[in-house]
Simulated scan of single mutants.
Amino acid sequence: MALSPEENNALCLEFFETAWNTGVVREDLLTADALDHSFVGGKSKTEPGSGSFKQIIGMFRHAMPDIHLTLLDQIYVADKVVHRWSLTGTDTGGVMGMPPSGKTLTFTGTTTVRMSDGKIAERWANVDELGLLQQLGVVPPPPGA
């Protein structure tokens, strides 16, 4: 059964806050064939099921065990939910294959979700990887910054 846009947003809030802030991926909030359209570390992939969600969240939680998601904006209509967010954590495990920096990192992104019958059916995310790499000192900041 289709849920209201508000109910869809509430389920997305529950899923992403739980996943990022505790490391628990709520498979009961995903369709069995949920698609994660990810673009992380310069590689694009689309993978059905919960594996991709678990891999990405696990990768960042391993690198930054104290990682915390803060939602900055929420937009929802019909079966779509869009969140603009920031993640903050201390790099003790090495982000994106880099050696641990010990730095507190903050990066932002946007996640778009398509809901189906009260569950997440698809997810697309855009992450400010350039900003993250600049904080790690891998990429120089822009001139005058």
Rank of each mutant, 00 (worst) to 15 (best):
M1I: 08
A2V: 15
A2D: 13
E7Q: 08
N8R: 00
N9I: 07
A10N: 08
A10K: 13
L11A: 12
C12M: 11
E14P: 04
F15V: 05
F16I: 05
F16E: 11
E17L: 13
T18A: 14
W20I: 14
N21I: 12
T22V: 09
T22W: 09
V25R: 03
D28R: 10
L30A: 05
D36F: 04
H37L: 04
H37T: 01
F39V: 01
G42H: 02
K43E: 15
K45L: 12
K45A: 11
E47R: 07
G51T: 11
G51N: 13
K54G: 02
K54R: 12
K54T: 12
Q55I: 11
Q55Y: 14
Q55P: 00
I57L: 09
I57A: 04
G58C: 04
M59Q: 10
M59Y: 03
F60S: 02
R61M: 08
H62A: 12
P65F: 08
I67G: 06
L69W: 14
T70F: 12
L71E: 15
D73R: 15
Q74A: 10
Q74F: 05
Y76V: 07
Y76R: 12
Y76A: 14
Y76P: 09
V77W: 12
A78Q: 15
D79W: 04
D79G: 06
V81W: 07
V81I: 07
H83A: 10
R84Y: 14
S86Y: 09
S86C: 04
T90V: 05
T92A: 14
T92E: 11
G94I: 07
V95C: 01
V95L: 02
V95D: 03
M96E: 07
M96G: 01
M96L: 05
M98Q: 10
P99D: 14
S101A: 09
S101M: 14
K103H: 05
T104A: 15
T104Y: 10
T106G: 09
T106A: 03
T108S: 10
G109D: 00
T112N: 04
V113H: 05
R114P: 04
M115V: 00
D117R: 04
D117Y: 09
G118W: 07
K119F: 00
K119R: 11
A121K: 01
E122G: 03
E122S: 02
A125G: 08
N126V: 15
N126S: 02
D128K: 08
E129Q: 06
L130Q: 06
G131P: 01
L132K: 07
L133T: 04
L133H: 07
L133E: 00
Q134R: 12
V139C: 11
P140E: 09
P141L: 13
G144W: 00
G144A: 00
A145I: 02
